[in-house]
Design a protein around this nucleic acid. Structure first.
Lengths: 190, 190
DNA sequence: CGTCTATTTGAATGTACTCAAAAGCGGTGG
DNA sequence: CCACCGCTTTTGAGTACATTCAAATAGACG
């Protein structure tokens, strides 16, 4: 169980056995079933979540009750509502399981304490948030410069695993188009 | 000159006179004229820039030579290509002055040294990158959930100062539409 | 096997785009 | 001070692409 996240962390920083032990001691295991919600809009989010197993979506519901998927997360990804987590405001996102999930949760106080006690984790989380920023930037660039078909192909290449695990109407939603349009695009691509 | 950035920093962290002195000692003043480039695509970006005066655009040029504006920056904003700055890869963005500009530059080595010597700056820059992340997230949410007219109004409300300083075709580009379309939207809104 | 949900297909509609041209605006030099 | 030039914005007509709404088909799951 903890080996998964230790492998993940070890790709970026090197920990001593004692540090590993200290790190895993603050992790809380969470199991959720498909369709259960990890975060509901309006929550005060105190946890950062690492996905050990399963698949989730983070989405935003607008004034007209339309849902818009901002992010998927699966094995080895982190997910939370970081605006709420960092800035202590109510969550604007809802995070829901698309499959049965196993997660590891870190409380924000424990995470802050960890940063103080093992400064290597400053580096780890700084790199994570920077990568998240860069990947969002790439998404904005792609929505500005590519047409729908190109954005679908990009998604397909970037997350070949997701293609099979996630319903097309979720992928369409993530791409900002209707399922009918995605269906027509897929038809053209055979 | 330095008072501007000290005021800016003081909104988030409190510095002693000695710390202020140490901080300003690593700043390099840069003056550029309208149309000059601060960063050109392909550069290795070693500096983080604070805008003291003037206005700039950060843009990406796609394979078809179309330019797409990712961000504007003006007084009290930071700008750089953070993918290049943090990850030491060539810049994908070009940053160009829309007016004559005065900037303060911090070299990445000096910035890292500063983080070590005055850990309060860890907090300062972490908050800055987090805010940048959250504001990009808001942009993605808005492009998924709003139509063009709503996005223009949002821009108008969020940056009323920019409205007058920046050409409409730049605003159109930022919004991901053509100047003709923006013109038609503005016509409807009288 | 049947029901519920997801995907596909079709036709009509709407929104932004392209291309082309006209009008407006600002700065420069005579 | 005004006329001209270059650049920005607006307007018009036709086109392309995604949407809406409705219906048919396909798949998944108990």
């Amino acid at each position: 169980m903890h080996q998964v996240i230790l492998n993940h962390v070890s790709k970026i920083i090197t920990l001593t056995p004692e540090e590993k032990e200290e790190f895993v001691s603050i992790l809380q295991e969470i199991k959720l079933s498909k369709k259960e919600k990890l975060i509901t809009e309006g929550d005060n989010v105190d946890y950062n979540y690492f996905v050990v197993k399963g698949c989730l979506k983070a989405s935003y519901t607008d004034d007209s009750e339309n849902e818009h998927i901002l992010q998927f997360a699966m094995e080895d990804w982190w997910i939370s509502d970081y605006e709420s987590f960092f800035n202590h405001v109510p969550a604007r996102l809802t995070v829901e399981c698309l499959e049965d999930c196993t997660l590891l949760a870190i409380h924000k106080d424990a995470q802050n304490e960890l940063l103080k006690r093992i400064p290597k984790f400053e580096r780890f989380f700084r790199i994570k948030i920077t990568n998240a920023f860069i990947s969002l930037r790439a998404r904005v660039l792609s929505s500005l410069s590519k047409n729908t078909k190109e954005r679908y192909l990009e998604f397909y290449e970037k997350y070949p695993q997701l293609e099979h695990r996630i319903a097309n109407y979720h992928i369409a939603n993530f791409l900002g188009i209707k399922p009918e349009s995605l269906s027509r695009i897929r038809k053209e691509l055979v």
